[in-house]
Design a binder for these strands. Structure first.
Length: 856
RNA sequence: GCGGGCGUGGCGGAAUGGUAGACGCAGCGGACUUAAAAUCCGUUUCCGUAUGGAGUGGGGGUUCGAGUCCCCCCGUCCGCACCA
């Protein structure tokens, strides 16, 4: 029968320490007061109802950092809250008749309980939900501040309309022409929308990326790509027989003499004007819009154009004209919605020219090319070269020709050098109920009037119904009816709400002073804590949330609300949690716990029939390859789950959840516990002075201190898997300790060290072991151990001996032995002599304490 | 097409240009047990009985020495994409 104390009772133990931490307020973040501060933040969750493994991974990573930094003496701010506005709450209301507020509150309560069971070191006093009026009132104020600062405007614009969700989507929420959530093909609609001028910060958001040294390269690359800066020329072409001009943007002004046509977007005002008197063109435009967003893949196939009959006069040669087309490949949203086409040096233009039999005149000659013989076939020449067929540009390089062409166009007053961005302003209006009301009033006489500060917050009404499609705020009998704050006339409230990315764009700042009712951010607190030193979250937010937050922070800074311009100093993007997928013979997905894996392969437990094992993919409800964290924590405890999240894969890589992996973690938790419950040597009492150490004890003691140094470094660099490996190495060595009082003393030192090093990862177990070792303090309040430098230095080192680069022997040498000694001992090795087969050494390379390489 | 990441045992993964495979998982052998579980010990890159040889996606290069640096190629994953 097992001894009563050699099996670790995770459930009871974890609850006990969670209660004690809570009572002692161990994780309350108070004013740093001179101590170095450290703000670690994990992306707060949407309260969907239950935590999933992605949360467990995310929050474990953050918690390790928080606990480690706390032990290192930092004043740590580690808060948690709820990103509580969003569509699922409304869907629940529609599908199950539960009010979004109720649904959200219940979910938060359930998830808070689950997070608490993980033993995360949050300062729960700072918790908030973004659907609280106490939170969103401040973002209404921010919006009005931005309005005053000229960072907000309203315009009619083409929007992406999701016909299933009855709402507008941001460009980023449209994936392959379909709504990111509904998957329905997106339609184009013209609506009046509020926009935030994120483009005003385009340049700064781009250049700022260079300073984000502790961000993953790929996230910076994705943002750079998204901002899409390109330098070029904006120039206008006169149109024959018209007084207006056609404004185009190009990055290749050097190829102007190769121009064969101009093309405008189907949504260009000129196209609309021409279509008014031309049914055929109108039909063509309608066709383009239908294709538009929905068939991004299919439409890559064909370039189509419609000849307007207009001629544009070449800006560098008034004797030349080119035809003007309406073309389906020209985007109104980019540049000026019009381009000139140079078929010889742009593949798309070439395809178009071939189709409509337009001339293809090469103007850039490849290096070493023959000007007389160079012709373009089916492939445009897009590389660099020397200009020809180009009047005053002839003989120049592409780079020089660009400059010269721009100079000439500018001198002629036909255009100017310009920088264009792919980034577009952020449309924030959503025709949805469960979001933050946009605080403006529409007055028939005064137009759009901001809600006065004194009337904030504009609260969401609770009494709404979800029995019709569309926005419940529109259907509310009287909520939108109000009076104009300026003239007192009857007026109407804006019924749109903010994009929910609004809330997550500043929550990190709110955590600094969550209780301040009068202001969004207590400036002194914000100055003390911001920026976030380490942000941890999923790669899926690489562009949207992170770019909006960077923009918002700058806008808030320019409104004097915060004193920083970059919100997140360091960013760790964790990989996904994956699991094998299973299908029954019938083809339906199976949950992992419906499958038994044995000698005969995978079987469906219920029927005994073979189950088809698919590849490991991101855990998702639709594929049923999910493991419920609550179940895991109830079975093995939070520490085991946390350990598994950390031990196998580096954080930024995908992690495969396996039964064997969680079992392995569970075994180690028990093994650690047994090491103090039933130690392999009788431990001396706490505080026993160090006896004289024998060789074995001394060697293990060195390992203890090497481990301290290594684990600290590993955690600093987020190499948690390596930190776990080193702690295991240490405990392996401790478990093998034999001998007398000296070994027992070292065993105690080793166990105490292992406890402290493992505490950020397995905090409950660490407390329990610490107590079992006789301490009446908390690990959570104990400083990180310090490695004694003297013990990090070895007096003998193992040096590899190579002959011609191949390992032939290893020799033990005194540390820092001189080269001559090393060489002498190395050459004396029999294996070395054999490998040299009698030849004299031509050269001997000695790298002290590392290697001796004999070249023969 | 553009940009980025990755490629190391059966598997997850370690290796400041200096002993490739730490640590774990799985496997195999053994101990304990009536038996099983748990635990413990040993073993485990490949070829070879062995001295030994080969080996980090492929090819070349730099170097006394390359998984690591440089060039070319292949595969794979992710992001963006009629962006003018």
């Amino acid at each position: 029968m097992a001894r009563i104390d050699d099996r670790y009772n995770a459930g009871e133990t974890e609850a006990k320490w969670q209660r004690i931490w809570d009572e002692r307020g161990c994780f309350a973040a108070d004013d740093p007061k001179g101590r170095p501060k450290y703000y670690v933040l994990e992306m707060f969750p949407y309260p969907s109802g239950r935590i999933h493994m992605g949360h467990v991974r995310n929050y474990t990573l953050g918690d390790v950092v928080a606990r480690y930094k706390r032990a290192k003496g930092f004043a740590v701010l580690h808060p948690m809250g709820w990103d509580a506005f969003g569509l699922p709450a409304e869907n629940a209301a529609i599908e199950r008749g539960i009010h979004p507020a109720t649904w959200t509150r219940d979910n938060i309560a359930a998830m808070r309980g689950q997070l608490k069971s993980m033993g995360l070191s949050y300062d729960w006093r700072r918790e908030f939900a973004t659907c609280d009026p106490g939170y969103y009132r401040h973002e209404q104020k921010m919006f009005l501040d931005f309005l005053k600062a000229g960072l907000v405007y309203r315009k009619e614009s083409w929007v992406n309309w999701d016909p299933v969700e009855n709402t507008v989507l941001a460009n980023e929420q449209v994936i392959d022409g379909c709504g990111w959530r509904s998957g329905a093909p997106v339609e184009k609609r013209l609506l009046s929308q509020w926009f935030l001028k994120i483009t005003a910060y385009g340049e700064e958001l781009l250049t700022g990326l260079a300073g984000l040294e502790r961000w993953p390269e790929r996230v910076r690359a994705m943002q750079e790509n998204w901002i899409g800066r390109s330098e070029g020329l904006r120039l206008s072409w006169r149109l024959q027989g018209r007084t207006d001009r056609l404004e185009i943007f190009t990055t290749r002004p050097d190829t102007l003499f190769g121009a064969a046509f101009c093309a405008i977007s189907p949504n260009h005002p000129l196209a609309a004007e021409l279509a008014a008197g031309n049914g055929e063109l109108a039909a063509f435009i309608a066709e383009c819009n239908r294709m538009g967003t929905s068939e991004a893949v299919v439409e890559a196939a064909e370039k189509k154009g419609w000849d307007t009959g207009l001629s544009a006069i070449h800006p560098l040669d008034p004797d030349r004209t080119v035809p003007v087309y309406v073309a389906n490949f020209v985007l109104m949203e980019y540049g000026t919605g019009a381009v000139f086409g140079c078929p010889a040096h742009d593949q798309r233009d070439l395809d178009f020219a071939r189709k409509y039999r337009l001339p293809v005149v090469p103007v850039v000659l490849p290096p070493g090319g023959d000007p007389a013989g160079f012709a373009i076939g089916d492939v445009a020449y897009t590389e660099t070269g020397t200009l020809f067929n180009s009047a005053f540009l002839d003989g120049m390089s592409v780079e020089d020709a660009k400059k010269a062409a721009i100079q000439r166009i500018e001198a002629d007053g036909n255009g100017q050098r310009t920088v264009n961005y792919r980034l577009r302003d952020w449309g924030v209006s959503r025709q949805r109920y469960w979001g933050c009301p946009i605080p403006v009033i529409h007055c028939p006489d005064c137009g759009v009037v901001p809600v006065p500060d004194a009337d904030l917050p504009v609260k969401l009404p609770e009494d709404v119904t979800f029995d019709r499609p569309g926005n419940p705020l529109d259907h509310h009998p009287h909520w939108s009816r109000t009076t104009c704050p300026t003239c007192g006339a009857e007026a109407r409230r804006e019924t749109d709400t903010f994009d929910t990315f609004f809330e997550s764009s500043w929550y990190f700042a709110r955590f600094c002073s969550p209780d301040r009712e009068d202001v969004a951010v207590d400036r002194a607190q914000a100055d003390a804590w911001l920026p976030v030193d380490q942000y941890v979250g999923g790669i899926e937010h690489a562009v949207l949330h992170l770019l909006y937050s960077r923009f918002f922070t700058r806008a808030l800074a320019d409104c004097g609300i915060v004193g920083i311009r970059e919100p997140f100093d360091g960013l760790l993007t964790q990989g996904m949690v994956c699991h094998e997928t299973y299908k029954s013979e019938g083809g339906g997905w199976l949950y992992p716990d419906e499958v038994t894996t044995g000698a005969d392969g995978a079987l469906e437990t219920k029927t005994g029939r073979p189950a088809i094992v698919g590849r490991s993919e991101k855990m998702s409800k639709s594929k049923r390859n999910v493991v419920d964290p609550a179940h895991i924590i109830a079975t093995y405890g939070a520490d085991t789950a946390r350990l598994f999240m950390l031990s196998d894969s580096p954080p930024e890589r995908d992690l495969d959840w396996t039964e064997a992996g969680i079992d392995g973690a569970w075994r180690y938790v028990n093994r650690l516990w047994r090491m103090v419950a039933v130690p392999n040597l009788p431990l001396p009492p706490l505080g026993t002075p160090m006896p004289a150490l024998g060789a074995e004890a001394e060697e293990v003691r060195r390992l203890i201190h090497r481990t301290i140094a290594a684990v600290g470094e590993d955690i600093e660099r987020f190499h948690f898997n390596k930190a776990v490996a080193r702690i295991r190495e240490l405990t392996n060595a401790l478990g093998e300790l034999k001998g007398g009082a000296d070994s027992a003393w070292v065993l105690r030192e080793g166990l105490e060290t292992a406890v402290l090093l493992a505490a950020p990862m397995m905090p409950h177990l660490a407390e329990e072991m610490w107590q079992a070792l006789g301490h009446d303090t908390l690990v959570s309040e104990t400083a990180w151990p310090e490695a004694q430098p003297a013990l990090l230095v070895e007096d003998t080192v193992t040096v590899a001996v190579q002959v011609n680069g191949k390992l032939r022997a290893t020799v033990s040498l005194p540390k820092d032995a001189d080269a001559a000694t090393a060489e002498r001992i190395a050459l004396a090795q029999p294996q070395v002599g054999a490998a040299m087969s009698g030849k004299p050494p031509r050269k001997v390379i000695v790298v002290p304490n590392r290697i001796v390489n004999v070249v023969v």
